[in-house]
């Protein structure tokens, strides 16, 4: 399940990722722009999502990433979260320590994106 969390309106990247995953044979539920942690939790429950991908391009990742994990935890959902977009190198370790399953940068290839999703889903 792919979503833009918060007010960041840059959705080109997430649409490219949706296409990469579809072309790898995955079913991608695209939630679109301006989602909240609550709306993502509600959708994840209804869709029985295997993994959640968040796209972030406005430096909100250190706030919104952990907020997403906390919301899933509160709902009792054990679903891996992958963050993609612009995440400065030092923040990657911070996010992984906080429990984000993987972080993908702007240079990630289709193979890398697909392999990452397969890996975090397989770990469940």
């Amino acid at each position: 399940m792919l979503a833009k969390l918060g007010l960041d309106g840059h959705d080109r990247g997430i649409k490219v990722v949706a296409r990469m995953l579809r072309d790898a044979g995955m079913e991608v539920i695209y939630l679109g722009l301006r989602q909240s942690t609550d709306s993502i939790v509600a959708a994840a429950e209804q869709e029985d999502a295997d993994a959640i991908g968040l796209s972030m391009h406005n430096a909100g990742h250190l706030t919104l990433g952990p907020a997403m994990l906390a919301a899933l935890d509160d709902a009792g959902l054990d679903i891996p979260v992958v963050i993609g977009g612009i995440v400065p190198e030092p923040d990657v370790a911070v996010l992984t320590r906080a429990g984000v399953a993987a972080v993908l940068g702007p240079g990630a290839s289709a193979e890398e994106v697909v392999a990452t999703v397969r890996r975090v889903v397989g770990r469940r």
Partner: peptide, 16 residues
Amino acid sequence: TGGAILGDRVRMAAVD
């Protein structure tokens, strides 16, 4: 590929 992009929720955000 058997894959799919399911985007109907985008238009249903108000009632999801």
